[in-house]
Write a protein that binds this DNA or RNA. Sequence first.
DNA 1: GGGTCCCGCCAAACG
DNA 2: CGTTTGGCGGGACCC
Length: 337
Amino acid sequence: MLVIMLINHGFLSLYNQGNVETIGLDDAATRLGVERRRIYDIVNVLESVGVLARKAKNRYSWKGFGGVPKTLQQLREEGLRENFNTFNGNNYVKVSDDDEDEKISNPITSQNDKPNPSSVTKSSTASKTDNRKEKSLGLLTQNFVKLFLCSNEAAKILLGDAHDPSMMRTKVRRLYDIANVLSSMNFIEKTHHPESRKSAFRWLGTRGKSDNGSAYSSVLNESNKRIFGTEITNTSFKRTKVDLENEVDKSNFEQDLRHSSKNFQFGPFAPVTVSVSKFGATQNSTVKQGHDLESLASTYRPQYHNQGIFPLRDLFVHYVEAWKSWCSEVAGRTRYN
DNA sequence: GGGTCCCGCCAAACG
DNA sequence: CGTTTGGCGGGACCC
């Protein structure tokens, strides 16, 4: 659909050629021939995984795939700290980061902001503001990613009910937004659950994605080709007869389409050590436990039986849980709205 | 009848 | 106050 086209033939071809420093939203919107509104969605999720970084109003800088590993690393840590792997319906942990130990560049993750004097502990200035942020696409994206990065044994929690179909509905729509840009960047791939024919996503990680150059990145491969089997990803060219095709068509660089190795990514494939070097040395003197950056950086292939495939349902069930807990938490101390 | 997601209203956030 | 940013969901589209 639209988003896919925008990213693959818009963002990536325009900004991932290694020579773009800053991106202007207006500029992007114009060059891509879409409404501004659409840019925000994309930019938000890209930012949440580290591909972009907000510089200032209307200004973003392109970090490329190089910035991703670091972000994933963070997300993983946060995710583990929270209960993105053990979460049992109730406990969860709002956790609210804290960080300060390594507030790298992720604005979303390291919430910060608010000159809120509250100091220590979670700001908890739970108000309209937080409320809004809570539902931001960016956060949702990070949660989505955390799920892949942290969850083991899959997220099969109570997928029974307790979920307002109403709110769930909206949530799911957002999920589509996120999934689209993520899959466009090839961080995930759309599939379907083994048994249940339900659609699901598989985490691909940052394999084969070169920093800036993008000399060859798997991203381009299936950009406009279906991914062996699932054509769900881009069945576009249908109702999307938008005008932006004029300049988007020039995409002809699909000649290579060798599905590389991604076809069977789950197995015990080796963690493709990308260009982990840099940050490895940078600020990671405190090398964490077992896994080192390499494994983290390159691919987070989950080695659980279901090879990291999460049914949509499970995903938002998770969100709903988080949301519910958040709601009760807020309700307890503040009347809002 | 359900999954997808385009489109854009309109309200927070921010000068 | 105007502008930027972006929740949110109706409803169209394709199964």
